[in-house]
C-alpha cells in the first residue's frame, strides 16, 4: 500500500514536473537567436533595430551584384519590402535561385547587423551579414495562366483596325482633295 502510494506519489510528482516544464517553456520567450523577422519589419522598426544583430527571412530577388572584391549585394524581399544584404562571396555561395517574373527565389535566412544609415555604404539602410546565408526553401518556378481569349480578341481587333486604317487613308485622301478644290 505504502509502495503503491509512493509510486502514485512519484507518478504525480513526475506529471507535475512535466506540466510545469511545459508551462515554463510556453511562457519563457524563445531565445533571440531563434526568432526571425521579415524585411518589412526591419524597415518598419529600423530605429529600434539599428546596430543590432537580427535574423531576417525572405526571398532572394533580382540579381547578385558585386559590391567589392570580397562581397556581393543580395536583395531580400518579404511582406512587400526588400532590403539589401551585404554579404561575403563565401557566405552567399549557397544562394542560387533569385526571384523574378518566372521564379520565386530561394527563401533565405540572413543573420546580420542592421544599419539604418550605413556609413560604409553612403547612408543606405542595409544589413551586413555575419553568417552564411542559409537556404530554407529552394527557388521554384511560377506557373502563369495564359489568357488565350485575350489574344484571340486582340487579334480580331487588330484585323478590324486594319480595315479602319484602310478607311482612314481613303477618307484622308478625300479630305485632301476637298481642301484642294
Amino acid at each position: 500500500m505504502r509502495a503503491t502510494t509512493s509510486r502514485a506519489g512519484l507518478t504525480l510528482a513526475a506529471a507535475s514536473l512535466t506540466a510545469a516544464g511545459l508551462l515554463a517553456s510556453a511562457l519563457t520567450p524563445a531565445p533571440a537567436l531563434a526568432a526571425w523577422i521579415s524585411p518589412a519589419e526591419v524597415v518598419a522598426d529600423v530605429n529600434e533595430l539599428d546596430g543590432q544583430t537580427v535574423t531576417m527571412v525572405g526571398e532572394a530577388i533580382g540579381d547578385t551584384m558585386r559590391a567589392d572584391q570580397d562581397h556581393v549585394w543580395i536583395n531580400v524581399l518579404g511582406d512587400g519590402t526588400a532590403v539589401g544584404v551585404y554579404v561575403s562571396n563565401e557566405d552567399a555561395a549557397e544562394v542560387e535561385g533569385l526571384g523574378d517574373y518566372d521564379r520565386v527565389g530561394d527563401r533565405v535566412s540572413v543573420r546580420g547587423v542592421v544599419n539604418l544609415a550605413c556609413e560604409q555604404h553612403g547612408g543606405d539602410l542595409d544589413i551586413h551579414a555575419v553568417a552564411p546565408l542559409e537556404v530554407l526553401e529552394p527557388s521554384a518556378p511560377i506557373e502563369h495562366y495564359v489568357p488565350v481569349w485575350e489574344g484571340i480578341l486582340g487579334a480580331a481587333l487588330i484585323v478590324v483596325a486594319g480595315f479602319l486604317f484602310r478607311a482612314y487613308r481613303a477618307r484622308r485622301l478625300g479630305w485632301v482633295e476637298a481642301r484642294r478644290r
Partner: peptide, 27 residues
C-alpha cells in the same frame, strides 16, 4: 512571357480600334 503577350495583343487591338475610329471623324 505568354500571358503578358496576350495582354499586349489585346492592348494594341483596343488602342488601334478606338484610335482609328476616332480618327475617322472628319476634322
Amino acid at each position: 512571357e505568354w500571358a503578358p503577350a496576350m495582354d499586349y495583343l489585346l492592348g494594341i487591338g483596343v488602342a488601334l480600334v478606338v484610335g482609328l475610329s476616332m480618327a475617322l471623324v472628319r476634322p
